[in-house]
């Protein structure tokens, strides 16, 4: 016997059915249920209000799959971390996403947890989210009104808040493929597996001669949402990955972010480590 009252749940078989339910006018918001790795922790109501009702989208297969289209990698919202880790397309085109997926939870979590769930759950510590920021990912949302696209950098609007409306579903993540783009990822957690990050970052750039261009730095666990670090990006833009550039970027990052003390780490540590890890990523690619 479960230790809680199960919220009402619907399991639409198609997107159209799902869109219809999302517009049912009941007034209580639906919580989309994908792999359930976040929702099932919340469902007992033991911590905060449990979801009012659940929209189980697991059966909507059109939300699964990875393919390339129009110069972009498209990943369905229901694609699991395990599927991402096993995908030849991801390995060949955005291998850093597989690297980030491998750091999440344990095998059981990776079998159920989905990329779309990570995006919509909107945890500031979501481990794939800095990667999605660094590669200029876009999120395609759907509803009975049609589709619209929101860039990753404007999707997370506040602590645990997103640009998704209650009647919309996240359909897929679109990652534009750029030639010559390099991306690096680093997660700092309390232990080597099954740890929520203290600091997580992804750095991307393109090489133009000696210099780096189109620099993007996505960070997690250092603000209320996953964030980009524009001042640090500007400090690196057009620079070669020299010691001076790394020093300047690390200093810019430590000045730019305002993490807090929480149950996992301290503001001082997060600020220091963000700079030191960024310095290391640059150094590793500068070859000095």
């Amino acid at each position: 016997m479960p230790n809680f009252v199960e919220p009402p749940i619907e399991s639409p078989a198609s997107l159209e059915q799902a869109y219809g339910l999302l517009r049912d006018g009941d007034g209580r918001p639906w919580r989309p249920l994908a792999g359930g790795t976040d929702v099932m922790v919340q469902i007992t109501g033991e911590i905060g209000e449990p979801p009012a009702r659940l929209l189980d989208i697991w059966a909507i297969d059109e939300l699964r799959g990875i393919h390339v289209e129009d110069g972009a990698l498209l990943i369905g919202a229901l694609t699991t971390y395990t599927a991402i880790r096993r995908s030849d397309e991801v390995a060949g085109l955005v291998p850093v996403l597989a690297e980030a997926a491998a750091t999440i939870g344990a095998a059981q979590i990776q079998n159920r947890g989905t990329l779309g769930g990570n995006v919509v759950n909107a945890s500031p510590a979501g481990d794939t989210l800095p990667v999605l920021l660094a590669v200029d990912a876009e999120f395609v949302l759907g509803s009975s009104d049609g589709e619209r696209t929101v860039p990753a950098r404007s999707f997370w609007t506040g602590y645990r808040q997103t640009a998704r409306h209650d009647h919309e579903l996240l359909l897929r993540v679109r990652i534009p493929l750029l030639s010559g783009r390099e991306v690096r990822f680093r997660k700092v957690g309390t232990r080597r597996a099954q740890a929520i990050s203290k600091v997580v970052m992804a750095l991307s750039w393109r090489v133009d001669g000696d210099a780096w261009t189109d620099v993007r730095l996505g960070l997690g666990s250092i603000a209320a949402t996953p964030v980009r670090a524009p001042a640090t990006e500007a400090a690196l833009e057009g620079q070669a990955p020299t010691r001076e550039a790394a020093d300047a970027a690390a200093a810019a990052l430590s000045a730019e972010i305002h993490p807090i003390d929480d149950v996992r780490s301290t503001a001082d540590y997060r600020r220091a480590v963000a700079g030191r890890v960024l310095h290391r990523l640059i150094r590793d690619n500068g070859g000095w």
């Binding site: 976040d38 922790v41 911590i47 945890s123 666990s221 209320a224 807090i260 149950v263 996992r264």
Partner: peptide, 9 residues
């Protein structure tokens, strides 16, 4: 939910 984090500044 999940107790996985505290809100950040």
């Amino acid at each position: 939910p999940g107790g996985d984090e505290m809100p950040f500044r």
